[in-house]
Design a protein around this nucleic acid. Structure first.
Length: 383
RNA sequence: GUGGAAUUGGUGAAGUGGUUAACACGCUAGAUUGUGGCUCUAGUAUGCAAGGGUUCGAUCCCCUUAUUCCACC
């Protein structure tokens, strides 16, 4: 079946929405956070553990599975769910973002994108049709259109040309789309320009999709700019379709996204920082590698209900991280994912209670301790 | 006991008679947003065993001592 979104309630003071999403594998409440499992595995976390932290949809990636093991193998295995032993909903990203990180602007043509495999340098060519064909075979529950993730900053002229192409690509993908059980999402681009975001949104709505994503954020702009990009997108999206903000997962960005009407998020941040020894906490991100945790025999968060917090101490996890034991990454991944999922659970309560702005302010006070986070770049420090 | 070799930071080590003693690991911090990458960035020596000498100047040359290793009695 196609995915079905139902809007349950809007928050009184913001655009935040409480909703439910019916999928092939159950119904889930939104706002929700989706863990990322690029290569058909959420790094370090088993499907059983995902279930235990109350995770819903997870992500997998078209580009990566195309290269290895290949969509035909996944298809022969009976589809992605059977292949990876996951009985929850799966969304596949189109490969558009990998193009953004692997290809050069000149390699992007009307037909598709030419780029080199990150594994062995093999020349590859990905088109909207090919991306959809692969996703149809992977048999995920939600497929994404193949888009161009526009770098930041980009000139208005470039963005304008790019979204026109992204719209044509979305149409081409939809035309070849062929999987009854699968849904297809369109991706809104447009950089930081409201009129271009509006135009892109309207054109995608005309083509018709089962849900919509907001793309092109978190590519080097500061947080304030990113929030504007989100606002300029949700403003023009239909209320009866789900909205997915791609790649966003810094806790505050999830809160601000929900406030602007976003329903679902995904991000590698919780699992990546976990592998680098970091944990989200209510009072800010902590680095378990820090010497100060050597003899800290308390959990990461006393109030957290995750497996890591209920059974292990910071001193132990610090030890695992220090000696590079895999289990350390697993515990931190479980905690960080649970942290974001709990955050979305809180936000859903806030929407019911109409107090999301108070929740946000309290969160910022605890998490940033007065730090000027709004001017932080969303990607490294490329100056 | 005799002969030989060695002694540089927490570790393994490079190196030169003359401004800031390589590199790696470790350690200490930081980064990380549709995941190529347990990755990236930065910091980290009471001045080179101790003492004395040669020299304008020695970690690098000489002497003594200490310690370690190898070979032979």
């Amino acid at each position: 079946m196609k995915i079905k979104y139902t809007l349950i309630k809007k928050e009184d003071n913001t655009k935040a929405r409480l909703g439910k999403l019916e999928t092939n594998y159950g119904t889930y409440d939104t706002p929700m956070f989706m863990p990322v499992g690029t290569r058909a595995s959420v790094k370090g976390v088993s499907p059983k553990e995902l279930h235990e932290i109350n995770s819903g949809i997870i992500l997998a990636n078209t580009y990566h599975l195309w290269l290895r093991p290949g969509e035909d193998i996944v298809n022969k295995a009976g589809g992605l769910h059977k292949f990876m032993g996951y009985d929850g909903p799966i969304l596949t990203d189109s490969g558009g973002f990998q193009v953004f990180s692997l290809a050069r602007p000149k390699d992007i043509t009307e037909e598709g994108v030419k780029f080199k495999s990150h594994i062995d340098g093999t020349k590859l060519f990905l088109t909207p049709e090919k991306s959809i064909e692969i996703q149809n075979k992977l048999d995920s529950d939600i497929a994404m259109s193949f888009d161009e993730c526009i770098p930041y900053p980009a000139t208005r002229e470039y963005v304008e040309k790019s979204i026109e192409r992204t719209i044509r690509w979305a149409k081409r993908g939809k035309d070849v789309f062929n999987n009854e059980r699968q849904s297809l999402f369109g991706i809104v681009q447009g950089g930081e320009y409201e009129d271009l975001r509006k135009k892109c949104t309207e054109e995608l709505v005309k083509i018709g999709f089962d849900g919509f994503s907001i793309g092109g954020t978190s590519v080097g702009e500061n947080k304030e700019t990113m929030y504007k990009m989100v606002e300029y997108s949700t403003k023009y999206l239909p209320e009866d379709k789900v909205r997915y903000l791609m790649g966003v997962g810094d806790p505050i960005d999830i809160i601000e996204g929900v406030i602007r009407g976003v329903d679902i998020f995904d991000c590698v941040l919780p699992t990546r920082i976990a592998r680098h020894g970091n944990a989200f906490t209510k009072y800010g991100k902590i680095n378990l590698k820090n010497a100060k945790f050597k003899e800290d025999f308390t959990p990461i968060e006393e109030t957290c209900d995750c497996y890591a917090c209920k059974n292990f101490t910071k001193a132990y996890i610090r030890h695992l991280v220090t000696v590079d034991e895999m289990f350390g990454s697993t515990l931190l991944s479980i905690h960080n994912l649970r942290f974001l999922i709990r955050l979305t659970e809180d936000l859903r309560e806030c929407i019911k209670n109409n107090n999301i702005l108070e929740y946000r302010d309290e969160f910022i006070k605890n998490y940033y301790h007065g730090e000027d986070y709004l001017n932080k770049k969303t990607k490294g420090q490329d100056d």
